[in-house]
Amino acid sequence: MSPRPKRIRKVSNPPIISGFKPYGVQSGGQEVETVFLLYEEYEALRLCDYEMHNHHQASIIMDVSRPTLTRIYAKARYKVAEAFVKGLQIIIEGGKVYFDSEWFSCSSCRCFFNNPEKQEDIKNCPLCKSTDIINCEKIPEDSTVVWQKCDDTCLCTNCGFEKPHQHGIPCRNEICPDCKIALVRKGTPHGKNN
């Protein structure tokens, strides 16, 4: 049986460097071994540890499932730790990814444009210089529907009561104030019917 095809991971920016070299190697002179960190692993590290998203949010940004994101992330941390402990160099390359930059649309001339300088924010339309621009990422797309459907919300399957999910507290430990039953995570198979 052949394995399931891998879902293509969405990476917003390629890293600005292509790797790291260890400093002050004891063995001296010899070529150090290499750990290959994949782009998707770099992105998982960036989203979870630098941008401080939780795994659920990061998985939506990368367009993969939550368990897949956690697997990628665990692998990334193992590789980084391995490089630190053994003094190996890290090269960031490969992986099944596609790069995507933010897209904007201008309301006055109705053109679309992207932002290749990802670190800087765009304020004007490059064509008509109007400031009336909209970030397309925020307009409903397929991925945003997922956001709304399984956003971090605890749901009562009985009366439909909702409250924002608090990280660290499982939804099943929350009690509905009206029905006195345990809540479930909205958008998950448990809370699907509502």
Binding site: P14, Y98, F99, D100, S101, C109, R110, C111, F112, F113, N114, N115, P116, E117, P126, L127, C128, K129
Partner: peptide
């Protein structure tokens, strides 16, 4: 798209087939 992204070239999609080059250049000069 990914190629231009890595080259840091900005893509502007302008779906107005009737626009003349002259008019677009005028817009750029604003």
């Amino acid at each position: 798209k990914s190629l231009l992204d890595s080259l840091k070239i900005q893509m502007i999609i302008y779906k107005e087939p009737s626009k003349r080059i002259k008019e677009i250049i005028e817009m750029l000069n604003h």
